[in-house]
């Protein structure tokens, strides 16, 4: 049985003054899926993602996020998504608990919900002893995991992760992906961009963007077969070499 589509795009395009950053991309993401969104720097990933998050208005084309239209229903979209940017996005001068409470607060969650969820989250990350410490004092890997947990704190239907594991060691990355799997099992759809090809292998399906277009979209295994490659690295290099656009 096919799961329902939670993200749908049709010919979605974004142009900036004579430059087409995202060129008529069409794809669907299914509910609960871990969707890898790959592409070289400047391929248009971030722009595409910003449109899907309602941060930027598309020039043309259609897109719906959890049933809400990206042109008109951005308020509704904001309620149903979580977002973690490549920049570390917690407040260093606030404690772990204060950060969690703040994000719970701006999503309008009740105190009871926040309290219960915080206890669960601290336990899950095994940082109960650090709850009242300033985030600045935590190691980077912990911060990253905490940032992810905060991004899905309000139980969104979809979470957008923009290169979430940049600068993190392989062990922590592995732990980070365990958290992603756990979230996925709870039914949260994961939309993730990454530069690490081993991470692409962890995704259910992967799309590869080249010069603003989606050049390939399949399961990692399917892609490897199509491009007759042994690793995702190979697949990516074959596609990325076709790029004519310089880094933006």
């Amino acid at each position: 049985m096919e799961a329902e589509n939670i993200i749908t795009t049709e010919e979605l395009t974004k142009r900036f003054a004579g430059f087409t950053a995202v060129d008529a991309i069409s794809f669907n993401v299914k509910k609960g899926e871990i969707f890898g969104f790959l592409g070289a720097n400047g391929a248009g990933k971030t722009t595409a993602m910003r449109m899907l998050c309602g941060l930027s208005k598309p020039t043309s084309g259609k897109a719906t996020i959890a049933g809400a239209d990206v042109y008109k229903q951005t308020e509704q979209i904001k309620k149903s998504i979580g977002y973690m940017s490549q920049k570390f996005s917690l407040y260093e001068d606030l404690t772990v608990k204060e950060n969690i409470r703040f994000y719970g607060g701006i999503y309008g969650k009740t105190n009871a919900f926040i309290k219960e969820k915080t206890a669960f989250l601290l336990h899950q990350l095994n940082i109960e002893n650090e709850a009242d410490k300033l985030v600045a004092s935590l190691p980077l890997g912990w911060k990253q995991k905490l940032a992810f947990s905060v991004a899905i704190f309000h139980e969104p239907q979809i979470v957008f992760l923009d290169e979430p594991t940049g600068g993190v060691d392989p062990v922590t990355r592995r732990e980070f992906w365990n958290l992603i799997y756990q979230a996925s099992e709870r039914g949260i759809t994961i939309f993730v961009t990454t530069h690490y090809m081993d991470e692409a292998e962890y995704c259910n399906r992967v799309s590869i963007m080249v010069d603003g277009k989606i050049e390939a979209l399949d399961t990692p295994r399917g892609l490897k077969e199509t491009y007759n490659a042994t690793t995702m690295d190979d697949v990516f290099l074959q596609l990325a070499r076709k790029a004519t656009r310089a880094d933006v």
Binding site: C53, K78, Y83
Partner: peptide
């Protein structure tokens, strides 16, 4: 950016 993605 996180603020702008949130419903506030």
């Amino acid at each position: 950016e996180i603020m702008l993605v949130s419903p506030i």
